[in-house]
């Protein structure tokens, strides 16, 4: 819920109202107070723990860090984690788009219920998702049984990881797109139609460009969420080194082997990579939004 609010506020305020810098218009207490609170809060909750991670890693030499963070087994886990997350985020960008579209544009019986269901992957513990998915996609599961017969391994394989990640990251795309879709008034569509554009052209040249920045945000959030997922994946994945071992699992395994530094090194790589990806997607989104609106 928090996320929806955040996104819609961000989008809405940028798009509609020109930013007012006059002090008298401010509704919240003064800039100093809110900014101070924001910085303290962010430091306590986010920055200090992350800094501690880096401090901990600082006791390693560069060679040690390199050996711990980039050996073949760890590299394989990065490939698996980033690869499956990318697939899950892409799948959700397509199907999440359709879901959001149907929920906003059409009125049908059970729409509210369906809308509420979207949040379920947010709300339920990831272990529950893991068990539920395993029950269906495992070799003896309802669907998995048939899929395995066709030679499709829907569990204990990278495909299984993709399924779990798609499940848990669906709400991010849908919830990010919904406000943007609701914001579209339909006038520009009508105008496009009146000017002789076909349905496909209207979608491709009018609707989609307006939605693309939100879709990109949704994609980035789904991707980021997938990178960090652990609970549901360990159930459905085979957890085999080099094949189906995700990075979060590897970090925990390192910890259980009493190798704190090794775990920290991998964690830092994940931190930096996630940050870089989010930054570049945000940058791209900002650029596109500016280009489209300006």
């Amino acid at each position: 819920m928090e996320l929806t609010l955040h996104v819609s506020l961000g989008e809405g305020s940028c798009a509609k109202q020109p930013m007012s810098r006059k002090r008298s218009y401010s509704v919240l207490p003064g800039f100093g107070l809110t900014m101070g609170y924001t910085l303290t809060y962010l430091s306590l909750i986010v920055l200090i723990p992350l800094a501690a991670l880096i401090v901990r890693a600082a006791s390693m030499s560069l060679e040690q860090f390199w050996a711990a963070a980039f050996n073949p087994r760890v590299m394989a886990s990065y490939r698996i984690t980033f690869g499956t997350s990318l697939v899950a985020a892409l799948v959700n960008s397509v199907f999440g788009f359709i879901v959001a579209w149907s929920l906003v544009r059409y009125r049908f019986v059970g729409r509210k219920l369906l809308d509420a269901l979207i949040d379920l992957p947010f709300a339920i513990p990831t272990a529950v998702s893991g068990i539920a998915l395993t029950a269906i996609y495992d070799r003896n599961g309802i669907l998995g049984h048939t899929l395995f017969q066709w030679g499709i391994k829907s569990a204990l394989s990278p495909l299984g990881i993709c399924i779990a990640l798609t499940f848990i990251s669906l709400p991010f795309v849908v919830r990010t797109l919904q406000p943007a879709l609701e914001e579209m008034d339909g006038e520009s569509e009508e105008a496009a139609m009146c000017l002789g554009a076909s349905r496909w052209e209207t979608f491709r040249r009018v609707i989609f460009p307006a939605l693309f920045p939100s879709l990109l945000t949704g994609f980035a959030l789904a991707f980021a969420r997938s990178l960090g997922e652990y609970g549901s994946v360990v159930f459905i994945s085979g957890n085999l080194p080099m094949k189906t071992e995700i990075t979060s699992l590897l970090i925990i395994t390192k910890f259980e082997q009493h190798d704190h530094l090794g775990a920290t090194a991998i964690a830092i790589v994940m931190l930096v990579a996630s940050f870089a990806i989010l930054m570049s997607i945000n940058g791209l989104q900002w650029y596109l939004a500016k280009k489209f609106r300006g």
């Binding site: 395993t134 495992d138 070799r139 003896n140 204990l156 085979g238 957890n239 085999l240 259980e256």
Partner: peptide, 21 residues
């Protein structure tokens, strides 16, 4: 020949008995 590596003995038992792997 190992399709899944659980983190503990009980997890492996569950894989074998409950999940029929």
């Amino acid at each position: 020949k190992v399709p899944v590596l659980d983190s503990g003995a009980r997890g492996a038992t569950n894989s074998f008995v409950q999940r029929q792997l």
